[in-house]
Design a protein around this nucleic acid. Structure first.
Lengths: 214, 214
DNA sequence: ACCATAATCAAACAGACGTTTGAATGAAGC
DNA sequence: GCTTCATTCAAACGTCTGTTTGATTATGGT
């Protein structure tokens, strides 16, 4: 029965990291919440840094797989692929994770935070996790937006990730619409995101792509 | 001559906060870089939290004033206002700050970070600084995008700020275009941002605005 | 010259931090 | 029964944290 304490530690860490940040959360706070001994973290994970990575590893693999499988399903469909569908394939799995319960919301919150906050090693770790997924999405988007040069497409992908990180992180700037969040807001948010991002991605390029081959 | 040490402390803090984050930067590291005594921070600013706020106060006022004055100039122009022009009025001052030198780049980096990272009190402080500016921009955008309901407009403003925060924070996801940054990148970035965001803001509303008073 | 005020300084404060240790506990194998 | 191994535990480790103190130095006013 190694797993029980480990799970409780991961749950507690996930919650506290999402609420307070990584540096601001102490091992003592985590073990207290998990009702475990202070030494348990170093025993099970080795260090605080390793615990942070474990928190992400636990859920990130499934998320990436879902995103990739949904993208693959799109590409296998034969018909032309819409930008909205690609965005949906990327965003919906994470929003579904959110809908699973408080832990999902915490995790996506954490995911947003980690892109900006977080140590260099953590960002490196996440970069390696994200890389294959983003590469696939970039490839598909490049195909259905042939006028965009690679640099422009990458910038727009960067902007897209910025919107998602910022929104997931729950950064509440002044006029954030609380009223909207009353009920069924995940669905509404998904459509708002797709509407906004699809238009941004589809904007005419600043610099027309030079035709390569033919 | 109280100001000399204070300026050096603010410079050092700004640089270190931007590089490492708030919690990760110790007063000792700041005073060492500023070549000042450890006690200088508590003497001149009172506490670490107050120092953080002072770092923002120093540059935020001018930035907000420039944004507002550029927006006012637009609105006073008589002609219809384009979404691109509004975005330019918001973004260009911050990019110009970046162009001023390393301190400008550090500060905008910091600005992006603070929205996600940062204590509750700091976010509150920043919210109060931003509120009047965002309110004005929201008003103008609401006027030139009359089909958007207030909730949708606020979400899209939220997304816009997300893109800016993420980009300024310098979050480097896997495929960030380094090649583009070789020269004159600020200009290019500005146009990329406006192109992307203007399209997103102008996207057709999900829910058509009900006509209020003819 | 003197005083008053401001600024700097070395030193110490109490507390929190991540990590380590060595003993105590538990359950499975034989 | 005994042994073995993984887990838990209280306690301490040394280090770093933000803040405070009291003495010391510099500055400007009269």
């Amino acid at each position: 029965m190694e797993t029980d304490t480990q799970q409780r530690l991961l749950d507690a860490a996930e919650a506290l990291f999402a609420e307070q940040g990584f540096a601001e959360t102490s091992l003592r706070a985590i073990t207290a919440r998990a009702q475990a001994n202070l030494a348990a973290i170093n025993y099970h994970f080795g260090s605080k840094d390793a615990l942070v990575r474990a928190v992400f590893s636990r859920r990130l693999r499934r998320l990436s797989e879902e995103r990739l499988s949904r993208l693959a399903a799109l590409n296998a469909g034969g018909q032309p692929v819409a930008v909205e569908a690609v965005l949906d394939a990327f965003i919906e799995p994470s929003l579904r994770l959110r809908r699973e319960g408080p832990h999902g919301e915490r995790f996506t919150r954490l995911l947003g935070r980690a892109q900006i906050e977080g140590s260099e090693s953590l960002r490196e770790f996440l970069r390696d996790c994200y890389a294959p997924v983003l590469e696939q999405f970039q490839r598909t988007l490049g195909r259905i937006l042939p006028r965009l040069r690679p640099e422009e497409l990458r910038w727009r992908l960067h902007f897209t990730l910025g919107v998602l990180s910022f929104t997931y992180a729950g950064a509440r700037l002044p006029p954030v619409p609380f009223a909207v969040r009353v009920a069924g807001d995940e669905e509404w948010l998904l459509r708002q995101l797709i509407q906004f991002l699809a238009a941004g991605l589809r904007a005419p390029p600043l610099m027309e792509r030079v035709e390569t081959a033919v």
